[in-house]
Nucleic acid binder design. Structure first.
Lengths: 220, 220
DNA sequence: CAAATATTCAATTGATTTATTGAATTATAG
DNA sequence: CTATAATTCAATAAATCAATTGAATATTTG
């Protein structure tokens, strides 16, 4: 048996997976797909890529079987091939947080409130989920809320909060969540809510993390 | 706040981690380092790389802070920066196993016995660890056994098994383990032991997996 | 069946990564 | 202080990856 050939061939396959995810744009695309199925156009818009470029990156992910395509009418819809793919992104982030000082620096630069305002962990939210005075607020676009949200959560997309503040009773505590720890929607929502006298905090992680942990979700 | 700049910068950092691991040789180097600290020369020899090339790949891993260097005398010894780094390799492998048919094909080609001989899972071994008639056999090089091994395991490196068969009582069941699921030492040991009338199986995973699961280990 | 739309494919260019080689650096031993 | 050994650095060529552009394909609509 040729040890060397075996090791080389098998590690080449493992490297295929790692190479597919090892790109700024593809990481963002996977993050978006973790919210649910999306068309190429939607993904291109969200990730600020040209359609052709987005398509190319999606092909790269597809070749590594990290995502699956489904054609319906004119559109091709992509989704994650396996929840483990999102877990991979999570783990990469976790290592980056621990090992790369730059990550903390970037967060401190862009999300100045993060350091001051302690986010609510998933576990904390679980234990408080049935408190009567607590509102769990999904601030992602409505489509994403529709595709799946934390059981019992209300939807007010970040773009609409300003106009819809009256829907939120001022005496209740609000926990806002969005796409994940590196999504800024919840930070912005909390900032706005706090400035209007609400008691508000963000959930540290996002919907995909909640779902991955097999916690109660709803679709509608 | 500039969303786009934040997303780009933060994902660039995450991509750094993924890019560092996304190479055939670097995956092998990390796998070796999961056994314990190694010098550049040892790593180069094991991974069949020139010293300069190995050093270069090690720099790439070091720049992403996935490994740490320690200089002692003439030699530089590298080790994993965090157990999570090995977890990353594990997860990549898990995804590759599930998603890439090639992985199964390669294993079937090189490790023909794997399909027939059911390996012992870590959990199975835990529950049987205190059976009197069971020998847990570490077939890695002695150095690696010395740096850490499954509590109670005996060491006979794969190269020496043939000559040292007499040390193994023929009536006891043997579970052999090595560096990991994609290390062939244990497969070869089991094959040899079976051909000499022993009852032998390999542990599915390797020592780093055992250690990562915080199971009892010994050093000597 | 032609027009319109979403996506992919193909070709090009520039940027990044990899392997190789030999020189430079650092530490030890005599 | 010199010779030796281990590792890193620097320079190069080859290979691979990324972004852009425009053409090609597939599906729907009229």
């Amino acid at each position: 048996m040729n040890h060397r050939a075996f090791k080389t061939e098998i590690n080449e396959q493992f490297a295929r997976i790692a190479k597919a995810i090892a790109n700024t744009h593809r990481l963002e695309l996977v993050d978006l797909l973790a919210q649910g199925e999306r068309s190429v156009e939607e993904l291109a818009n969200e990730a600020a890529l040209s359609i052709a470029n987005a398509s190319q990156h999606l092909q790269a992910l597809r070749e590594a079987h990290l995502i699956i395509a489904r054609k319906q009418g004119l559109r091709v819809y992509y989704r994650l091939a396996d929840p483990t793919v999102y877990q991979l992104v999570q783990l990469i982030r976790q290592i980056a947080e621990r090992q790369l000082a730059e990550v903390e620096r970037i967060i401190d630069t862009y999300l100045t409130e993060r350091k001051v305002l302690e986010p609510v962990t998933i576990n904390e939210l679980i234990s408080r989920l049935h408190e009567p005075g607590l509102i769990v607020l999904d601030v992602r676009p409505v489509l994403e809320y529709t595709q799946g949200h934390i059981a019992g959560a209300r939807s007010i997309p970040i773009d609409e909060i300003q106009q819809r503040l009256h829907e939120l009773p001022p005496d209740q505590e609000i926990v806002a969540y969005c796409r994940g720890a590196y999504c800024v929607f919840a930070d912005e929502a909390v900032q706005l809510l706090l400035s209007h006298g609400y008691q508000a905090r963000r959930m540290q992680q996002g919907y995909p993390d909640w779902k991955l942990a097999d916690l109660p979700t709803e679709t509608d």
